[in-house]
Computed example of a mutant assay.
Amino acid sequence: MLSVTGANRGVGLALVQDLLEHKPSAVVFAGVRKIDSLKTGDKLKDLADKYGDRLNLVQLSSTSVEDAREVGKVILDKAGKLDVVIANAGIMTGHSPILSVPLEDMRNHFEVNTLGPLILFQGTAQALFKSQSPKFAVISSGGASLGQLFDQPITAYATSKVGVNMIAARINQEHEKENLAAFALHPGVVETDMSAGHEFSPDFKIITPQESAQSILKYVDGATRSSAGGKFWSAPDDAEIPW
C-alpha cells in the first residue's frame, strides 16, 4: 500500500502511473487538493477509471491537518496498513535573491514544503506503524544542500527544503522501534510546470517526470532502514548528497 501526494501532475502523476503499470500488486492512495475538480480527460481521473480499486483518490491539501487525519483513517479502513508514503507535493514560486525575497514567499514555501510533509506523517503514522517495514520518503531538492550551495536565487524554496530534510531525519531517528525508514530524495532537475520559465545552469541535466519517477521508485523499492534511513540521496544519480 502506497500513498503519493501531489499526484495530479508532474512527478507525482508519473509516480502513480509507473506504480500502476509496473507493479500489479500495488494499491495506491493518490492525494489531490480538490477531487471535485478532476474530470474525464484529466490523466489522474482517467487512471482512476482504468484501474478501479487499485487507485484511490483522496482529498489532501498539503497544509490541512484535517485532510491528513482523514486520509490516515481511510487507509486504515480500506487497507489496514500503509507501507510507503512519498511526500511529493510542493511549490517553487519566485526566484528572488536574498536581498529582496518577500517574507510572504518564505512563509508560503515553509507552510507547504516543510510543514506539509510533517502534517502528512502525523496523519498517516498509525497506518505506517501497521507495516513491518514502513518507508516515508520526502521529495526534497539538491538545492537544499548546505555542503554544495547551488548558484541559483531560490532562497525561499531551498530554505523550505532544508527544513523538510530535518523533518525526515527526525522522523527516522525517533521511530527506530517501528523499523521506519525516513529519508530525503532529490528527484533531479525535472521538466515540469513548476520549473517552467526557470533558467537552470547548463551544468544541470534536465530530465522528464517519467525518468524522475523511475529513479525515485527504484530507490524506494530497495530502501531499508539500515541502507536509507536518515539519508539525503539523489535518486537520478544514485548518490548521497551532503547535508
Rank of each mutant, 00 (worst) to 15 (best):
A125E: 13
A125T: 03
Q126E: 15
Q126L: 09
F129G: 06
K130W: 04
S131M: 07
S131E: 04
Q132I: 11
K135M: 05
F136R: 03
V138E: 02
I139N: 02
S140R: 11
G142F: 03
G142S: 11
G147F: 04
Q148H: 11
Q148C: 09
Q148F: 01
Q152C: 07
Q152A: 14
P153E: 12
A158V: 02
A158G: 06
T159K: 03
K161Y: 05
V162T: 13
V162R: 15
V164G: 00
N165Q: 06
I167M: 06
A168H: 03
A169P: 00
A169N: 14
R170F: 02
I171E: 02
H175Y: 15
H175I: 00
E176C: 00
K177M: 08
K177E: 15
E178V: 05
E178N: 14
A182L: 07
F183K: 03
A184S: 15
L185V: 13
L185K: 02
L185E: 01
L185P: 00
H186P: 02
H186A: 05
P187I: 09
V189F: 04
V190M: 06
V190L: 04
E191H: 09
T192R: 05
M194W: 08
M194H: 07
A196E: 13
G197P: 09
G197S: 09
H198N: 12
E199P: 01
S201W: 02
S201D: 14
S201T: 14
F204N: 05
K205L: 12
T208R: 02
P209D: 09
Q210C: 01
A213T: 06
Q214C: 03
S215T: 13
K218P: 02
D221W: 00
T224R: 05
A228C: 08
G229Q: 05
G230W: 04
G230M: 06
K231N: 12
K231V: 12
